[in-house]
């Protein structure tokens, strides 16, 4: 098995592992941030360039460094490879540039965006971005489009990560949306205002890193940090034509006694663990529909963990127990 050294930490990984996966195995301290890569979606990644790293030694056989920074999500490790991520000032500077590029055409109106509080771009900007924008021109703007009964698309917020396109392609049998036009005029769109209508369409909301695709049954009902996430499951037999099955394992978002929203469960990296169907997501919003497992593991630093638990210490014990059971590591140490 190839050995790779990332930021001075050596790890042995199975053949075919990408640099990003290897870094994630080491831990969140050295894992590059991602905006377009999604481990559950094939051929995702490579577009946003936030995960770029410097390869200072190609492999034991060919020790030359790679001439340019590489996208860690799409580059497989070689035996003896040496990689710099957070230890390379050059990479941190380049990443700052990427964050700036992602933000120049993104509205900076988080206070009125439904995704605020669980937005990957917000987190990325907070960790790697500059304090002030240097962009002084008009930002790209689009009208909001309803794509189907449940999902609303607001292209203004989109960062063209292609995740929703790949989700539709890989877990449903009939992709009706994609990217049209090119360059910074590109937009996600359905084929002539067609509705995205299949039993797994709601997953595009979960994979969207920003507030471009939002849940119409939840939009503007509540700020996420006023809701309380709880793990639950039900027996679900929905199956798509491509063989994608619904796990029935979800996260319920409570406000008081009411379930305001149902989403798939997300892991430490903000990725969906198992995809769920629209029936579970949109049509089961009563507590009696579900078997409750307990509070969801939430990063201590996340805004979602604020405000709504009365006995925080009790909860912390509970959460850690839960994390252990689910195999999470180091969640509280995430920078």
């Amino acid at each position: 098995m190839p050995k790779v050294t990332i930021d001075g930490i050596e790890i042995e990984v199975p053949k075919g592992t990408t640099i990003l996966q290897a870094a994630r195995m080491i831990g969140p301290e050295v894992a590059p941030p991602t905006m377009c890569y999604y481990s559950k979606l094939k051929t995702s990644g490579g577009y946003c360039r936030t995960c770029i790293v410097k390869v200072t030694k190609g492999s034991a056989q060919n020790p030359n460094p790679m001439p340019k920074p590489v996208a860690s999500c799409r580059t497989e490790v070689m035996d003896g490879m040496e990689v710099q991520n957070v230890t390379s000032p050059e990479i941190l500077e380049a990443r700052k540039g990427v964050v700036e590029f992602l933000l120049i055409n993104h509205p900076l109106d988080c206070p009125v965006c439904d995704q605020a509080g669980e937005c990957s771009l917000q987190d990325l900007g907070y960790e790697h971005g500059a304090a002030k924008t240097r962009y002084e021109f008009k930002r790209r703007e689009f009208e909001r489009i309803d794509i189907g009964k449940y999902v609303q698309l607001h292209m203004t917020r989109c960062i063209l990560c292609y995740r929703c396109v790949k989700t539709a392609e890989q877990i449903t049998d009939n992709r009706v949306h994609g990217v049209i036009h090119r360059g910074d005029a590109g937009e996600i769109s359905t084929y002539i205002e067609k509705a995205i209508d299949n039993e797994f369409s709601g997953n595009v909301i979960d994979v969207c890193p920003v507030g471009a695709l939002t849940d119409k049954t939840f939009r503007f009902k509540q700020r996420v940090w006023f809701t309380k996430p709880v793990e639950a499951h039900r027996k679900c037999t929905t199956k798509s034509a491509t063989g994608q099955t619904c796990s029935g394992k979800v996260r319920l978002w409570y406000k008081g006694e009411d379930i305001l929203r149902v989403t798939a469960r997300k892991d430490q990296w903000g990725e969906v663990e198992e995809f769920i169907c629209n029936d579970c997501r949109f049509e089961h919003k009563k507590t009696s529909d579900w078997t409750i497992e307990g509070p969801s593991p939430v990063n201590r630093h996340s805004v979602i963990s604020q405000n709504h638990y009365n006995h925080l210490n009790e909860l912390k014990v509970e959460v850690m127990k839960h994390q252990k059971a689910l195999g999470f590591i180091n969640i509280n140490k995430r920078p």
């Binding site: 360039r49 540039g97 590029f101 063209l160 090119r182 360059g183 910074d184 005029a185």
Partner: peptide, 16 residues
């Protein structure tokens, strides 16, 4: 005008 728009530095940077 000719940037394909796949990756962010080129998509956003050329216009800027």
């Amino acid at each position: 005008h000719e940037s394909c728009g796949q990756c962010s530095p080129c998509r956003e940077g050329t216009g800027w």
